[in-house]
Design a protein around this nucleic acid. Sequence first.
DNA 1: TATGAATGAGGATTCATTCAT
DNA 2: TATGAATGAATCCTCATTCAT
Lengths: 189, 189, 189, 189
Amino acid sequence: MARPKSEEKRDAILAAAVQIIADQGLGAPTARIAGLAGVAEGTLFTYFATKDLLLNQLYLGLKAELRQAMMATYPADAPLRDRLRHIWDRYVDWGVHNPAKRRTLAQLIVSDRLATETRALGSEGFARIEDMVREGVAQDLMREHPPDFAAAILASLAETTIDFILRRPDSAENYRAAGFDALWHAIGR
Amino acid sequence: MARPKSEEKRDAILAAAVQIIADQGLGAPTARIAGLAGVAEGTLFTYFATKDLLLNQLYLGLKAELRQAMMATYPADAPLRDRLRHIWDRYVDWGVHNPAKRRTLAQLIVSDRLATETRALGSEGFARIEDMVREGVAQDLMREHPPDFAAAILASLAETTIDFILRRPDSAENYRAAGFDALWHAIGR
Amino acid sequence: MARPKSEEKRDAILAAAVQIIADQGLGAPTARIAGLAGVAEGTLFTYFATKDLLLNQLYLGLKAELRQAMMATYPADAPLRDRLRHIWDRYVDWGVHNPAKRRTLAQLIVSDRLATETRALGSEGFARIEDMVREGVAQDLMREHPPDFAAAILASLAETTIDFILRRPDSAENYRAAGFDALWHAIGR
Amino acid sequence: MARPKSEEKRDAILAAAVQIIADQGLGAPTARIAGLAGVAEGTLFTYFATKDLLLNQLYLGLKAELRQAMMATYPADAPLRDRLRHIWDRYVDWGVHNPAKRRTLAQLIVSDRLATETRALGSEGFARIEDMVREGVAQDLMREHPPDFAAAILASLAETTIDFILRRPDSAENYRAAGFDALWHAIGR
DNA sequence: TATGAATGAGGATTCATTCAT
DNA sequence: TATGAATGAATCCTCATTCAT
């Protein structure tokens, strides 16, 4: 007895949700999401009992995806600055190449529909960055910031950088480098 | 000329909207806003023909308020770093002391309910910061970033800082200083 | 102490009502009527305590106007057929030249907003036609129809004639003549 | 395929609309219509996306019904006068026996809620009458009227006749005969 | 499990009427 | 009397969710 609820359909719903929410906001009807996903209105609810549940799963999924993108081909043995740059580039690139996902994520984050627990789960896994900060501080490469604060700075500078790249794609490389430069000075020594 | 439209009522509606939206999101019923404002459901619509119009006005109002807060008692003759610090402190303080307004602003910004024109109007007036950046670059105090990029970095670091202060109010002073430190290094030389 | 409520304003409101109702139906807002009449929303209600009252007055006014139009320069001494033709022509012409009034009247007649009494008042004054029918029967010029039935036939054929003239104004004269011909045969001998 | 949309429910809604509109006008709430039809408020909108759509369908349905009534048991081989009389009687009877439908139809016709296309569709199918007129003219039985004008005369005289019968049901037979007599002379020779 | 019709609470907006000015 | 802001009931329609098929 294989899994009866097809993984495929679940994914289709999630993917549809990203598109729809990106351009109609969280108020978008579940019916529209189902439609784009190619399933019936009611079917959506066999995969996600509730719209809120769908939204929470969506958030978690997107966060996980971003995390994976950041960590893919992570050069564990490279020098600190290179590893940081690796993460930075991955973050920025993911954002630049997935504007709908990013927009949806933004809506979810400021919304009141994420359970506290969900939010907590989503924030995990940036531990690697925090480790790097601790390492940097120990090696005297970085100024002494609380590690989570430094990680948050990385994220916020990356977001700003992505915004500018999306607005002026021609200067993408400039902004990506300038952003990293700002980051390195902001938290480095 | 009958009863003139009262500035007071308009403000009450806007103030109510801030509270309600901060904790129920943009989907909050206009009826609830009117209720909190102490006016009839219909009255809201004599002041704002449409919920979207209300939202756009609200955005503009909050942006203006933040701008004023930042520029109040601006020490025009102080050294660059002090002027930047002044703006930084005002920004952070405003955010810390007006969490509902800030939350509402955040919702509005990621929403799809702001007219393009509104968004443009709202972004104006951060020119002062950009001027400072130009000045800093000229004086060789700052690294050469596009001025609007530097201004955006200020805003994003301030937001991050506010987040941390709200989460750990006891360390407010530390975060405010650390945040500025990060900013100064990020864009300074 | 002359009359304080200006007759002029009253008429302006009634005239505005005709236009507005003709193209937006009876559901048109009183505010819009007031606007077109050039008076304030509230002023309308000092002239007509209620929208229903306004509608009833409007009906009565239009009916009276049509009646007067029909009877103007009535050739009391002409032969029966000529007198009937006179009324016919006046009726048709009034309808053709006052399409908005006619449309409004039509809406009022089928609506449920006319008081029974109003409707009764409106129907009066077609007595002249009924007299003509009696006279015609007596003179053996007309077939024996109930006089009010004959009058109603006149009205309904006139309405139909007006409809066709409005749709094909080039053939106005043809239709007016053909319509009268039909009427004369319908009720005449 | 889940529950299919039931023809029954659709008809119930249409039937309810007739009753409600007949006595409360086109302004009658959809909720009341749904209520009388025995379905939920929302259900009405799965059958008719819009109140205007419902109204247009209603008009078309009633027109079709009237047309069918007129043509049922049409004696295609009878003499012209008998065929005309057949249509006349059917028309009048339908009106007399379906006062609510007739009242609703009247409201719809003068309203501004029928699409131009709807109105066009509704007028089709009175072609049979026009054919009869052509035939009558050819046989020298009728005076030369434009066929559509003659058809309109039939309708308007029938309506007038129905009005009188409804007001004085005791004389139904007289009016029906007198009305046809008027019609026959109006358009016949 | 998949479907989509059925449900009815809820929401933005309208509008006749009232009332402070 | 004239004005137009204030009122809140009423209206059309939406939408998450349920349920018969």
